[in-house]
Design a protein around this nucleic acid. Structure first.
Lengths: 231, 231
DNA sequence: CGCGGCTTTGATGTTCATCAAGTAAAGTGG
DNA sequence: CCACTTTACTTGATGAACATCAAAGCCGCG
């Protein structure tokens, strides 16, 4: 179950230099005093699609899944959020309610600030506003680029792409434990579970990767890159 | 060829109420004095991918194509911009250079403001900053939603989707002239030209639409909607 | 007029989803 | 803790959806 944790000072948080560095001492203190830090277990839902947005949230550590219910058709897995990402990335400033469901796929620690306070600071502190604009802009661009990249590839290319994504963007290691099921990977890169499995097995047979349950080791980065580029 | 046109007052522009309504008289005057209004012919390139970003641009009238060169593979057609959209939507505040190429697919009229002036106003006017944040946020969300919608449909569903998109979002009419070639539609919704044509013909035979060159008339909105929903 | 790009249709082959069936793993209640 | 249920994983077979190839008509443009 999610739980509130000891309040740490914002002064020692990686986020300070990322976003709040320019903040006036007075505002930083207010953020420090009103923020709430929460921890979530693996599998726990952080935000449910449709809930009212009243917090500005950001991920301090862990890994989150961003997805969307699409009626009977199933679930669209849109992407992952890694530390320093804002949550509710797209909707925070434009919608009343969350358009996406956020789930912790690894134990995660997050900070909340009242959205009203955020808006207040934006209104008062233009330098901060500009910085926020830049961050949101580049985050949105990254998500879109990812989706475009995935959808123009064939299945083998998609698997190669997502493996390199985990390797480079999430774990910074050739060896990692998949944070999601093969079914979910299928939802993320628009293909059937069976084909996710088939192609992973194929890569294993070709000695491009090694698989042991959810643990993946990339053996031949060059080949994977090649499949990603030309697939 | 693109050309500068008579300067109209920002006071009578639709954009004023859309974005600049809260601006102080002083800032509005500055915008008014330094802005440039340009007109572009059909087919003219407005922005070339890679160019330095130094203007904040918005579309007053016409229709723009947003696309991206992706090496040898061809061209990714990302979406269209309709009046009141900002241009360089994603990159303006996060990148040095444009990530996308913008082309006028209908005669278009645009306004430019120096990006530095924009940033200056953002810094000084928090209410404006917040408004801009909201607009950018909702624009980005719309683009992403579109891409997700397109990619989870089969080919008939994609064609139905894009026809309804033109009908509802762009032309507000059941009868419209396609602003782009069938090849480009294929690039927009990730399918081959031949299949774009085949499915359009199929819809024509089924008396769901009428085709005359680039002119399309949607005859049976209900059926199209159904194909869009279940395809 | 002739060239190149767009459009169209048909034929063919590949890729991928679907169906089926079985094993393994993980959660659940007695 | 064990039987039971459910969910995840895996492989093979089949057919549908889609890309590709080919050929011809069309249209605008130098």
């Amino acid at each position: 179950m999610s739980r509130k944790v000891n309040i740490n000072s914002c002064n020692v948080c990686a986020y300070k230099s990322f976003l709040f560095s320019s903040l006036h001492a007075k505002d930083l203190t207010r953020v420090n005093l009103t923020k709430k830090e929460m921890e979530y277990d693996q599998g726990e839902v952080v935000i449910r699609q449709g809930e009212k947005i009243n917090k500005f949230m950001y991920l301090k550590s862990g890994l989150l899944k961003i997805s969307q219910d699409i009626g009977t058709v199933g679930n669209q897995f849109i992407g992952l959020a890694t530390p320093l990402d804002f949550i509710g990335l797209l909707s925070v400033f434009s919608q009343e309610n969350y358009q996406y469901t956020i789930t912790a796929v690894e134990p995660s620690s997050m900070c909340h600030i009242e959205l009203e306070l955020m808006k207040e600071i934006v209104k008062r502190d233009g330098t901060f506003a500009l910085k926020l604009l830049e961050k949101m802009s580049s985050m949105n661009e990254a998500i879109l680029r990812n989706r475009l990249q995935i959808n123009r590839r064939n299945l083998r290319g998609r698997i190669a792409y997502i493996l390199l994504y985990f390797c480079r963007e999430v774990y910074q290691s050739n060896k990692f434990v998949l944070p999601v099921s093969r079914k979910e990977i299928g939802e993320l890169i628009n293909m059937r579970t069976e084909n996710v499995i088939r192609i992973l097995s194929e890569f294993r047979k070709d000695k491009i990767i090694d698989i042991s349950g959810k643990e993946i080791t990339i053996l031949d980065t060059g080949r994977i890159q090649q499949i990603c580029d030309f697939g």
